[in-house]
């Protein structure tokens, strides 16, 4: 409802008042986000072109840090491993989460709200606490091993459970499954039962009805969930640090290490910028998709 200018040379007092209200309401938040969100990212971007000399930051413009991201095989391996892990975690979350979201939206009846909240609630518990629990579960003398031994399924504790890429993946899936179920639920909830019934009435079997109606209509939810899951899985260092053992570092751990232990800010900033570029690309692509899916012209 944009006012088209040109036709109204005079601004009425009531309109001026409205504008002042709008400005006063928006300005604090916008300024806050500029100072504490946009400016920090810009500083980070600038620092990524600087260099370190004798443990001091030296301003300048050097692409060396970026070259290192792609030239250093260890860094490159971490980046690829991170992408693989994030991809696997996203896939696992989608497969695990879809039936649950479907169940809550379509089959849970009056328990719907309770079940939905129960899915999301763990997400609000500090990630440090949630992930630390998995150490108790997966450790060599952990709950799962002890349970397996006492059930007689294995005589020796399985050593590979904790401190492996697998345990990292389990932790990440655990951490971000709630985040995936939420948009999936929202998308499936919008699908009216009558559409599915109509498909079945037109002689589509349950599987066909799912593939022809439910799945395509819930695709936006799948995409949104996937983007969130992927981004969070990519940029997290708590889970791999607590469960991954440290043999193969993920990219987020390396960035953290560069900043906190090695004090190489430009190096870390450059890797962070590469990460950010990947995230931005994903966001842009998904927004483009969602816009097309919602019927707007791209």
């Amino acid at each position: 409802m944009e006012r088209i200018s040109g036709g109204s040379p005079t601004i009425l007092p009531s309109q001026r008042r409205r504008r002042r209200f709008a400005l006063a309401g928006l300005a604090p938040l916008v300024l806050w986000q500029l100072v504490f969100f946009v400016v920090p990212l810009l500083i980070l971007l600038v620092i990524s072109f600087w260099t370190m000399r004798n443990y001091r930051l030296e301003p300048g413009f050097s692409l060396e840090n970026y070259r290192a991201v792609f030239a250093d095989p260890a860094l490159w391996r971490s980046l690829v491993l991170s992408l693989e892990t994030a991809f696997f975690v996203t896939l696992a979350c989608a497969l695990l989460g879809y039936p649950v979201a479907y169940f809550i939206a379509k089959k849970a009846g009056r328990f719907r709200i309770v079940l939905l909240i129960a899915v999301i609630a763990p997400f609000w518990i500090s990630i440090v606490m949630r992930i630390s629990a998995w150490r108790i579960l997966l450790g060599e003398n952990g709950v799962i091993n002890q349970a397996l031994i006492s059930l007689g399924l294995t005589s020796e504790p399985l050593g590979g459970l904790l401190y492996s890429p697998v345990s990292t993946a389990i932790g990440l899936v655990y951490a971000y499954l709630p985040l995936y179920v939420l948009p999936l639920y929202a998308a499936i909830d919008r699908i009216q039962d009558s559409w599915i019934d109509a498909a079945k009435d037109l002689n589509a079997g349950p599987v066909r009805a799912f593939l022809e109606v439910t799945l395509p209509l819930s695709l936006p939810g799948l995409v949104v969930g996937a983007v969130f899951c992927f981004i969070f899985g990519l940029g997290e260092f708590v889970t791999p640090a607590l469960l991954g053992g440290g043999k193969q570092l993920l990219i987020a751990q390396i960035i953290q290490d560069e900043f906190q232990r090695r004090q190489d800010w430009p190096g870390g900033a450059a890797i962070a910028m590469v990460l950010l570029a990947i995230v931005f690309t994903l966001l842009l692509l998904s927004m483009r998709y969602l816009r097309i899916a919602s019927g707007e012209r791209p």
């Binding site: 980070l44 940029g235 960035i255 995230v279």
Partner: peptide
Amino acid sequence: LPQLVLGLGFVS
């Protein structure tokens, strides 16, 4: 955006 990047921004 990844919280890690947010954290680095704040450090800077």
